[in-house]
Amino acid sequence: MDEDDLRQVDIRLLPHSLQELIACIGLENAYRLTCVFGGRPKYIPKHPARSSLAELLPAPALDALIERYAGIAIEIPKADHFCRQIRNLKIVQQSSDGLSRSALADKYGLSLRQIGNIRRQDHETPG
Rank of each mutant, 00 (worst) to 15 (best):
D2W: 06
D2M: 06
D2P: 01
D2L: 05
E3C: 02
D4R: 13
D4C: 01
L6D: 04
Q8N: 08
D10N: 15
I11R: 12
L13Q: 15
L13S: 12
L14R: 03
L14N: 05
L14A: 05
P15K: 08
P15C: 05
Q19A: 06
E20L: 12
A23Q: 13
C24K: 01
G26P: 01
E28S: 12
A30I: 02
R32T: 13
T34D: 02
T34L: 01
T34N: 05
C35N: 14
V36I: 14
F37L: 11
G38F: 04
G38T: 08
G39C: 09
P41Q: 15
K42P: 02
K42S: 08
Y43K: 12
P45S: 14
H47K: 14
R50L: 13
S51F: 01
S52E: 15
E55A: 11
A59E: 15
L62C: 05
E67W: 04
R68M: 01
Y69N: 06
Y69I: 02
A70T: 07
I72S: 12
I74M: 09
E75R: 13
E75I: 08
E75T: 10
I76G: 01
P77W: 02
A79E: 14
D80M: 10
F82H: 04
C83F: 10
R84N: 09
R84F: 04
I86D: 00
N88P: 02
L89R: 11
K90D: 10
K90Y: 09
I91F: 04
I91R: 07
S95F: 11
S96H: 13
D97T: 04
G98P: 04
S100N: 05
S100G: 08
S100H: 04
D106M: 06
K107Q: 14
K107D: 07
G109R: 10
G109F: 06
G109W: 07
R113A: 11
N117F: 06
N117M: 09
I118F: 02
R119Q: 15
Q121G: 12
D122M: 06
H123R: 15
E124T: 09
P126F: 03
